[in-house]
């Protein structure tokens, strides 16, 4: 907690200064509200406009969490299967690597065409964008097992199963978690974009409605909500990571 204050005051100061400059520029230059609202107006809407956006919040949260959970499961299972079946790994790993450089989100319109406008295509989109980074980071983690420990276990007569559960799996956990963190961000993005393509409720819908009615302050509120949602999801994952990986040496202070 103390380090949070110690490390956090500088960026907080920068943000506060930025808001102050923004507020005064908008006032002095008399910028119209539909073009760029002042921070005070945005915060006002954030506090007093709950009636409008609260009903849009829950569907998006639901979408993110369900999509991410299924995406993680699919990603982990795929990673394990590709790891233990060398033939499949050799066949699919290059495809996975290449597909990582393509924004999978572009497939969203297709999924809407195939599965309609319900929840299903949206969850599909999120699973699709989530599972790639997880599978790849897991596979990388598996491959980075220490050679000496591996030799030790083999000489001690460890079975393939023992090697997997006692060495490869725990060794891959940190890498897996960095994959999950990337996926968490993707899941929020996937939810909002798939809502743009067609939905009756959701932050994406709220954002679109606000934009078409020139309520730029509400567009900013939507952005804030998305940021908060992403950070909360990330915090949740980091909490889980801390619970599961207690052994990692304290990060060195050299990079500060």
């Amino acid at each position: 907690m103390k380090t949070l204050v110690e490390k956090g005051w500088r960026p907080t100061l920068v943000l506060v200064l930025l808001f102050i400059i923004w507020e005064f520029s908008v006032k002095i230059l008399e910028i119209e509200q539909w073009l760029l609202p002042a921070p005070s107006q945005i915060f006002n809407e954030l506090i007093h406009g709950t009636d409008v956006y609260l009903e849009h919040l829950w569907p998006t949260i639901q979408l993110c969490i369900i999509g991410l959970a299924i995406g993680c499961t699919v990603g982990i299972v795929t990673g394990i299967i590709l790891h233990i079946v060398p033939f499949l790994r050799q066949a699919f790993y290059p495809i996975l690597i290449i597909s990582q450089n393509i924004p999978t989100i572009v497939l969203a319109p297709l999924l809407v065409i195939w599965f309609g406008f319900g929840m299903l295509p949206k969850i599909f989109v999120i699973i699709l964008v989530c599972f790639f980074p997880i599978t790849i980071s897991l596979l990388d983690g598996f491959r980075q097992s220490d050679r000496d420990v591996m030799n030790y276990m083999k000489m001690a007569g460890a079975t393939k199963q023992q090697i997997f559960w006692k060495l490869e799996w725990p060794n891959a956990l940190p890498s897996l978690f960095s994959g999950i963190k990337i996926s968490a961000t993707y899941s929020v993005m996937g939810a909002v974009i798939s809502e743009w393509l067609g939905a009756s409720k959701g932050i994406g819908v709220y954002m679109q409605l606000s934009q078409s009615s020139f309520r730029t302050d509400r567009v900013f509120v939507a952005i804030i909500l998305i940021v908060i949602l992403s950070l909360l999801l990330l915090g949740l994952i980091m909490l889980l990571e801390k619970k599961m990986i207690r052994w990692r040496p304290k990060e060195g202070k050299s990079h500060e």
């Binding site: 220490d146 000496d148 420990v149 030799n151 030790y152 083999k154 000489m155 001690a156 007569g157 460890a158 006692k166 060495l167 725990p170 060794n171 956990l173 990986i245 052994w247 990692r248 040496p249």
Partner: peptide, 17 residues
């Protein structure tokens, strides 16, 4: 495998244990 007890050149301990 499994007939000898071996200590590798590096300590080869598991950091998570």
């Amino acid at each position: 495998r499994g007939s000898i007890s071996y200590m590798p050149q590096s300590h080869a301990l598991m950091p998570w244990r």
